[in-house]
């Protein structure tokens, strides 16, 4: 039995305990606009280091938009405007002095649909370290490629065909290749936008297992439509609705005894 962080009331905790309490990312009253339309309203949240946080909510609730703020991916959308503060280790990531490309090396991203480059498996991994100047010698690149593929639990499946196209792998393997590609530039945070939505249950299980292993070293934020997945992998879960952060709790508390009626209605399928 553990005690929920926000209350002294004991709960029937089924998720793993939340070990890490150091804040990695802290946002304060973040608003996001697409032109005149406001997609995110005054979201303030602390995301903890070496823990998995899940963002859930119905389509259009803003969870992916908010995720994309965390490594300034919204900069690539002309009409998008982000207001408020987002701190990574206390540093404002929207400070003009911050290079978005360097930021995205620290805060990597894995997308819904596996998107390997039309290159060999080896080059998919070596690309990032090359443009970030992390290695120069062939042997160093070899080490990074093997380390990254091992970290992403796909080395044994691809080690004998590193020169073959990444696009030739199965969907689940492609997604793990993309995770390896993100890890190759040694990020601190990994943002995952519905990483398993295009995968079958076996591939999903492998990615989830990988998430559980990766959280020992990385801060992970995952957007998912799959409640059971949030329950399985996340230490904390945040529920978004119509651009608002409605509730943010330990995952077990949120799924066992949510504070807000809107959360209750959404997670139990009584929404609408």
């Amino acid at each position: 039995m553990v005690t929920d962080s926000s209350s002294t009331q004991p709960i029937r905790e089924t998720a793993r305990p939340v070990h890490q309490e150091r804040t990695k990312i802290s946002t304060h009253e973040v608003d996001v606009f697409y032109g005149a339309a406001q997609a995110i309203r005054k979201v303030s949240i602390d995301l903890y280091e070496k823990a998995v946080t899940a963002f859930i909510g119905p389509s259009g609730c803003g969870k992916s938009t908010f995720l994309r703020c965390l490594n300034r991916m919204n900069d690539t959308i002309d009409v998008a405007r982000v207001e408020g503060t987002i701190l990574l280790d206390g540093q404002d990531i929207y400070d003009p002095k911050v290079d978005p490309v360097q930021l995205r090396a620290r805060v990597g991203m894995v997308f819904q649909k596996p998107n390997p480059f039309p290159k060999s498996i080896y080059d998919n991994i070596a690309y990032g370290p090359r443009i970030h100047g992390l290695a120069t010698r062939k042997s160093d690149f070899d080490d990074i490629v093997e380390w990254s593929l091992r970290k992403a639990a796909i080395w044994d499946e691809v080690k004998d065909r590193l020169d073959q196209p990444g696009t030739g792998l199965s969907g689940g393997q492609q997604q793990r290749l993309c995770i390896a590609r993100a890890l190759a530039v040694q990020p601190e945070v990994l943002l995952m936008d519905e990483p398993c939505s295009a995968l079958d249950p076996i591939a999903t299980a492998k990615v989830e297992e990988l998430i559980a292993e990766m959280k020992m070293e990385y801060t992970i934020v995952i957007v998912t439509h799959n409640m059971q997945q949030a329950g399985r992998v996340a230490d904390r879960t945040a529920f978004f609705y119509l651009g608002d952060l409605i509730e943010y709790e330990t995952t077990a508390k949120l799924f066992m005894n949510p504070r807000e009626e809107q959360t209750e209605a959404y997670i139990s399928g009584r929404f609408g």
Binding site: G231, F255, M256, S268
Partner: peptide, 11 residues
């Protein structure tokens, strides 16, 4: 896979 008040009812 019930959650919240539903899983509490089942328990």
């Amino acid at each position: 896979q019930p959650v919240s008040v539903d899983v509490r009812l089942i328990a």
